[in-house]
C-alpha cells in the first residue's frame, strides 16, 4: 500500500469523526466532529483529562471500533483494523503473554509471517533498541514494570509499523521510570522514524515528547486547542524542562485546559 501523491506527508486524515459507544444498553457519544491530520514522522501528543475519550480516539485510529465520519489512513479509507499502526497499551501486564519469554513476546506480531531468520534479526534489533538483549530469555513477570513496558514497545517496533499509537504507556509507572522511558522513546524515535500518536493526561509529558499537541476536552469530547511545539535540539529531562520555551508552552496548555474545564488539572 503506497501513499498517493496528494496525501504525501499525511498519515491520518480525520473528517468529521464521531464515535458512539454502547454502554449498558445506551448509546453514548464519546467523540464529536473531530477534524485533524497526523503528519508523517511527527509525534502528535493528545492530552485531556481522564475519561474524556482519548483511548477511544486511539482505538478509532487503530480501526478497532466503528466510527461515524471518515478516517483516512495512508490515503485509504480505514475500514477495520489498521494494519500498519501498532498500539502500545498502558496495561503491559495484560498486553504481554506471561507464558512467553521476552524474545517470544517481541516476536508475537511477526512470527510465521516472515522467514525465521529475519524474524530473529528483527527481534534482536528491537530488543537492542530498548536495551533488553540481556533479558531476552526471561519471562515478563520476572521483570520490573518499566522493563515490561519496554518489551511491549519492542514488540511494536519489531513489526516496523508506519505508526505507533501510545495509549498512556507510562501512566502506571513511577516518576523516575517514566522519565527514563520518555527519553528512551525519544531515542527510539530518532532511530526508527515512525509516526507517533501519544496519548497522555500528563501535560509535561505531552509537551516534552510531542512535536505538536492537541487538547481533547468536553463531553462529548472535541478538539479544543492545538499547539506546535518548536523545541529545538536534543531534548533532555533537565535542560529542556527548565527552558523558557518549554515552560511557556506548558503554561499555554495549562491555561487552555483550565479554560476548558474551569479548574486547574493536576499534573499528577
Amino acid at each position: 500500500m503506497t501513499t498517493q501523491a496528494n496525501t504525501d506527508g499525511i498519515v491520518y486524515q480525520l473528517r468529521d469523526l464521531s464515535v458512539n459507544l454502547r454502554r449498558r444498553g445506551q448509546d453514548r457519544q464519546i467523540l464529536q466532529s473531530l477534524n485533524f491530520e497526523v503528519r508523517k514522522r511527527e509525534c502528535l501528543s493528545i492530552v485531556g483529562p481522564s475519561g474524556t475519550g482519548k483511548t477511544t480516539l486511539l482505538r478509532a485510529l487503530a480501526g478497532l471500533i466503528p466510527v461515524e465520519g471518515e478516517i483516512t489512513f495512508q490515503g485509504q479509507k480505514l475500514e477495520g483494523p489498521a494494519g500498519d499502526a501498532v498500539l502500545v497499551f498502558q496495561d503491559y501486564g495484560n498486553a504481554l503473554l506471561r507464558w512467553r519469554t521476552v524474545k517470544k513476546n517481541v516476536a508475537l506480531g511477526i512470527e510465521g509471517r516472515i522467514p525465521r531468520e529475519e524474524s530473529r534479526l528483527r527481534v534482536d534489533e528491537a530488543l537492542e533498541i530498548v536495551g533488553l538483549q540481556k533479558y531476552q530469555d526471561s519471562y515478563p513477570w520476572e521483570l520490573s514494570g518499566g522493563m515490561q513496558q519496554r518489551v511491549q514497545i519492542a514488540r511494536a517496533l519489531a513489526m516496523k509499523p508506519q505508526v505507533l499509537l501510545f495509549d498512556e504507556p507510562f501512566g502506571s509507572l513511577d516518576a523516575m521510570t517514566r522519565e527514563g522511558l520518555q527519553d528512551e522513546l525519544l531515542r527510539v524515535r530518532s532511530l526508527h522514524e515512525a509516526t507517533c500518536v501519544f496519548i497522555t493526561h500528563d501535560i509535561d509529558e505531552a509537551v516534552y515528547l510531542g512535536d505538536r499537541l492537541m487538547l481533547l476536552s468536553g463531553s462529548p469530547a472535541s478538539l479544543t486547542y492545538e499547539l506546535d511545539i518548536p523545541l529545538t535540539g536534543t531534548r533532555s529531562q533537565i535542560s529542556t524542562k527548565e527552558s523558557a520555551e518549554f515552560l511557556r508552552l506548558r503554561h499555554q496548555v495549562y491555561e487552555q485546559m483550565r479554560k476548558a474545564h474551569g479548574a486547574a488539572p493536576t499534573t499528577e
Binding site: 482505538r59 487503530a62 478497532l64 483494523p81 494494519g83 499502526a85 501498532v86 498500539l87 497499551f89 496495561d91 495484560n94 498486553a95 503473554l97 507464558w99 512467553r100 508475537l108 506480531g109 512470527e111 510465521g112 514488540r155 513489526m159
Partner: peptide
C-alpha cells in the same frame, strides 16, 4: 479475556491457530 489482550490480538493481526494459541495460553 482481558480487553487489552483481545485488542492486542486484533491489532497484531493474529489469526487462526496463532490467535487460538494466545487465547488458550491465557
Amino acid at each position: 479475556l482481558s480487553p487489552v489482550l483481545s485488542s492486542s490480538i486484533i491489532n497484531l493481526r493474529l489469526s487462526g491457530w496463532h490467535r487460538l494459541s494466545v487465547m488458550i495460553g491465557s
